[in-house]
Amino acid sequence: MKRLVVAAGGGGDVIAATMLRTALFGPAAPALVLTYAWERLTVDPLPGPRGRSDFTGLVTPLPGLALVTGRTAPIPPAGSSLPGLARDLGAPLGLLDPYEGAAGLARTLTAAAAYCGAARIDVVDVGGDIVAAGDEPTLRSPLGDALVLAACARTGLPTDVHVAGPGLDREVPEAELFARLPPPAFTLTAHAVAPVRTVFDWHPSEASAMLAAAARGVRGLCGIRDVPEPLRLDARSAGVHRLTLSQALARNPLARLLADSRTLAEAELASVEVCGFSEIARERVRAAAPAETAPEDAEFPVPSGGGPADVVARHARWQAVLGSQGITLVTRRRLTEGLALDRAADLLLRARLGTDPAQNASPLWRVPARAAPRG
């Protein structure tokens, strides 16, 4: 028998799901993790999620269930981190294809349960948007999580919903979020991080990186990309809150509305009705935006062809500004995109930081406190 674990939001949630699987069942326990191929545009330039038809090399052990392995590849121009994650995590990943709505996802979950011999489902969400009401002004990506809840309800299988790292996705205001969650069931520790440590060398996930750092005892004020206010890592940041499926559904009106959805287009319209927006439509706008107006614009860009000394000097200036703002930690994505590092500059800078215990807070980087430079 294998455990059946569902990473509800796509992106880096599969990393968090692997950490949670380790904490719940042990690193040697067989498990299948299912996830969306739905990632930021820097990974996949096409808006929206990728489905089965967007990949070559999928393995189909049962009708309705497709597995991503290290030999799977997205069909260009699509991109996906899932084959790399399957290689690094040492196990295939089940693909959640939302193009047939909650009905199609339920068929996938039912097939996965049969394949695993699993009698129940464990759903994992990093941050807490799986309990979003839909009217939060900071809400950005509710659809994937809501579809998973609706699909789980259709299967009839007992389901637990685990919210790990409450608030780390900055989608539901903290006061509202904790009011919707029961007390933490347990806290992740460094033991759960061990199986995923190498993934952060290349994967851009920020929420899962902060969760892993918090589980390792890292504390401080963390600067992340595309969010104006830094996020404080504290003792609550490694907490895991467990809800029943009925509790999660009661808190998520979009999931309830998606119960009978049979296409992604239907689900997108439901999102507009409940939340006032479609995240897929937003991605279409971002994907079509000229490069100079893209949200990935660098704070301290390194000029093309700049040598090692230039990279180091610009990094020092950037750190000084961050330090003067009280920021003590940054994510790898904030570092690479904030300085517009190419691969060579990224490797050079991370090699220097990685040997400095004052700055290495793996998988985050520390920012020494200092005054901002003048002029």
Rank of each mutant, 00 (worst) to 15 (best):
A164W: 04
N252S: 07
S304Q: 12
R170M: 09
H162G: 03
E100W: 02
T336M: 10
S237T: 06
W38L: 09
R216A: 14
F55P: 09
A118R: 04
R251I: 11
T110P: 07
V199A: 02
G51R: 10
R40Y: 01
Q247N: 10
P166F: 01
L147T: 08
E39V: 11
R21H: 13
E296R: 14
P373G: 10
P230H: 15
P74I: 13
S141R: 02
D310H: 12
L231V: 15
R334F: 07
G165Y: 12
A153G: 02
V240Q: 02
V5Y: 02
L349W: 10
G10C: 10
P204G: 10
A248R: 00
E273A: 15
D201P: 05
D297W: 11
A270Q: 06
V163Q: 12
L62I: 04
T138A: 00
L329C: 01
F186Q: 02
V59G: 03
R107H: 09
C152R: 07
A28L: 08
A175L: 03
E39C: 00
P83C: 12
T198C: 08
A287P: 08
P158G: 09
E296L: 11
G375V: 11
F200K: 10
W38I: 04
R236I: 02
A31D: 06
R332H: 13
E273V: 07
L32D: 08
A16K: 02
S324A: 15
M19H: 07
T293W: 09
Q319I: 09
D54S: 15
S324M: 14
A111Y: 01
A340K: 05
A146K: 02
G220D: 04
L233Q: 05
S362E: 13
G167D: 06
R350F: 02
L157F: 14
A23Q: 06
A113V: 06
E136H: 00
E283K: 08
A103M: 03
L269D: 14
P295R: 11
E100A: 12
V43L: 14
